[in-house]
Amino acid sequence: MQIEDTVRVGDAAASPAAPERHDFGRPAALSREHTRALAAAFDAFARLWAMQLTSKARLRSHITVDRVTLETYDEYVSTVPTTTTLILCTDDGSDDRAIIEFPVSTALQWIVRMLGGDAAHTLDTRALTPIEFALLRSLMDETLGHLRGSLGGLLSEKLAVSAVQYNAAFAQIVSAQDLVVVARFSMRLGDRTEAASIALPAAVLLERLTDTTSTPHAAPDPDVVRRHVEETPVELVLRLATRSMRPDEVLDLAVGDILSLPHGEDRPLDLAVGEHVVASAAVGANGARLACVVTSSDLPRTLAEETA
């Protein structure tokens, strides 16, 4: 009997897994190039969002991106809490939509802290009052601005906060089987760690992202680069020949000490940019101001002719 049992267990372990359905009408995941571009953009947004919450909500914040995925709206809805804060962002003139999601207790904590209170304890989960939503909306308007800036031209400039919902099933920005790009974040707010997410319709976002990444980068114009270099301010220094000293000699310096420098009286001074000597000059005057008269150029002949 023991042998039969052993054989049955082995057979069950060796049996292949049940086949999974694959929808050839939708991509399995984001391409590697799109994933890198979106991860970098959301990472930049996470840093800006953390700084905003630290300053506006007076709450030490650290936000990191966990992952960026491509999934249907139904799949996204199944992963968020039943009751949560969903900030709906829309643009009446286009198909741009967005959801910024985080716990209701976190939203209430931000509001209490913006009003000068202390929300150290866990707050009850409830709907926001009109005044509370107005305060949260002003905060999320700035957050949405950070999101638009981080994603570049992937989001409409007219995308704005329009409403708040507490159940993802009622905050439907696309149909149930339409794809959305979902970015999930870990938010460390003081001593607490919360989860947050952002969902964006994939159709418009990926089309713009493809156009952006497929556009060849324009070759730099040599004349433009040269003009930028030539117009960059540099610090020009007129200096004597340097002398080396030991640290103990420097520490023993006192008022009235005389230091001899290895610079002859008839030798011109060095005219330098940083550590590079570019010319020799003699001390002169220009009205009531000190000046220098360039006596020779230390630039290579080819470079001097090129910059003339």
Rank of each mutant, 00 (worst) to 15 (best):
S214H: 11
D270C: 05
K56N: 08
A279G: 08
S197L: 14
N286Y: 06
D141A: 10
D191N: 09
L128S: 07
D141H: 14
P16D: 05
V225C: 00
A134K: 12
L251I: 13
I131R: 14
R32H: 08
V180C: 05
E75Y: 00
A199I: 13
V234G: 01
T54I: 01
D211F: 01
A272Q: 15
I111C: 14
Q177I: 01
L88Y: 00
A203C: 02
A282R: 15
R36V: 14
L253W: 09
A218V: 12
A28R: 10
R192N: 03
H263P: 03
L123N: 10
D211M: 06
T35C: 06
H22M: 11
D223S: 03
R226N: 04
H146P: 05
T106S: 08
R21I: 05
L238F: 05
R67D: 15
A37F: 13
E265H: 12
D178V: 02
P216Q: 11
T232Y: 05
L115D: 13
V174A: 05
T64V: 15
F170W: 08
G145D: 11
L261S: 05
L144N: 02
D191S: 04
R32T: 12
D5K: 04
C292E: 00
A203N: 07
V229T: 10
V294A: 09
E75I: 01
I3C: 07
P216F: 04
E275N: 07
D270F: 11
A202T: 03
S197H: 04
G287Y: 06
L70W: 06
I198A: 00
G145A: 02
P233V: 01
T35Y: 11
D23F: 15
F133K: 11
P247C: 09
P130A: 07
Q177H: 11
E275R: 11
Q109W: 01
E71K: 15
R60Q: 12
R243E: 00
T84H: 10
S61F: 03
R208T: 01
A18C: 02
L30Y: 06
L240C: 05
S214I: 00
V278F: 09
G284S: 14
R226D: 03
G149K: 14
A282V: 15
G149N: 14
G153H: 12
L123A: 05
H22D: 11
A41L: 07
L123R: 14
